[in-house]
Design a protein around this nucleic acid. Structure first.
Lengths: 181, 181
DNA sequence: AGCGATTATGCAACAAGTTGCACAATCGCG
DNA sequence: CGCGATTGTGCAACTTGTTGCATAATCGCT
């Protein structure tokens, strides 16, 4: 599984506390690997126990007080091993496509509205990605690190574009308007 | 969750036994909602207990003997209710994008090969979808049912196309060849 | 008739992800 | 100083998905 490796990557980029990680998983990292704060805290506990990360020292630690983690050499090695292994793409599991297939047997009522709703969501997400691209990735800067990050963002942009294209195609084929009347 | 609804849809299309369902989940349905046979058997048990489906009668039923299921009216209603409710698209969780982000902190070694491997997998999948499209969806037939099924397939085709485009873009940006030397 | 391959159903244990909640410290404000 | 809002950590229970295995019937072949 990849959650621990997502966390190791995030901590290598920047040592953080559980809540800071949670926020980053809600923003940039979460654009391709989402996780809730409970998942993150649980995984931080496991990673610390496994000796892959450690909490930065603090006077005394009590519940409700910030706790920063950093990656230990063993953690960096574990991440490298994971990266070297290679993951197969997981089979698609998409409820909206299933919804279409269901519509073929129970009828298309309400389908147009649902497709339009998704179209709106994807358009909004695409706009967000584009804003980030314009803000963070000017054509000048071109270090390898930047290029990799930019590629990830491009992936998000193109994926949202795919959905928008497909949804418009679907609505057209069903004789439905693209926007609410 | 959607597995029960995927099964209900499949059984409405065609009453089947657990193994027949499993095969269909490996083919057409599995292209957008994958499931293993254990998941399917477990879910069939639950659906039967809930009164949404029933096993077609047979002389006597023992382990290792085929058991066909059909959807009861309550099952059709449950499916319609699920379809009416609407699902939000789930956040992306993609290991390859995570892999790129990890490469930014631990180095790009082996990344090109991994991207090429994925490129090959997606190209093969796309070819498979295209073959199905040519075989099953001639421009003549145009019932609503066919149109819906075709749209689902188009989704698969466009999704694979997205991956191929992005992977080629990524390899180019990294100065890597698109195919093994 | 005997036997291995295939078809078919299913249990159990585990791993991963989700939901709901509890509780402590700290910060801002009147 | 007191008190509500926010920040921060975390447990417990549950659902979903995966892996490995057990077991029974049937089919084809010799």
């Amino acid at each position: 599984m990849s959650l621990p490796h997502a966390i190791l990557t995030a901590l290598l980029e920047q040592p953080s506390s559980g809540l800071e990680l949670t926020r980053r998983f809600d923003r940039s990292i979460g654009y391709f690997w989402s996780a809730t704060h409970q998942q993150i805290y649980r995984e931080l506990g496991k990673l610390e126990e496994a000796g892959l990360i450690r909490a930065l020292p603090a006077a005394q630690r009590v519940r409700g007080q910030k706790k920063e983690y950093e990656v230990l050499p063993a953690g960096r090695e574990a991440l490298a091993a994971w990266a070297a292994a290679g993951q197969d793409p997981r089979p698609i599991r998409d409820a909206l496509l299933l919804r279409l297939r269901a519509a073929a047997v129970i009828g298309t009522e309400g389908l147009g509205a649902e497709l339009r709703r998704h179209l709106g969501l994807h358009r909004r997400q695409l706009a967000e990605y584009r804003a980030i691209e314009e803000r963070d990735f000017l054509p000048e800067r071109d270090a390898t690190e930047d290029r990799l990050r930019h590629l990830v963002l491009r992936g998000g942009i193109e994926l949202e574009t795919f959905w928008i294209t497909w949804l418009e195609e679907a609505l057209t084929a069903l004789g439905e308007p693209l926007d609410e009347a």
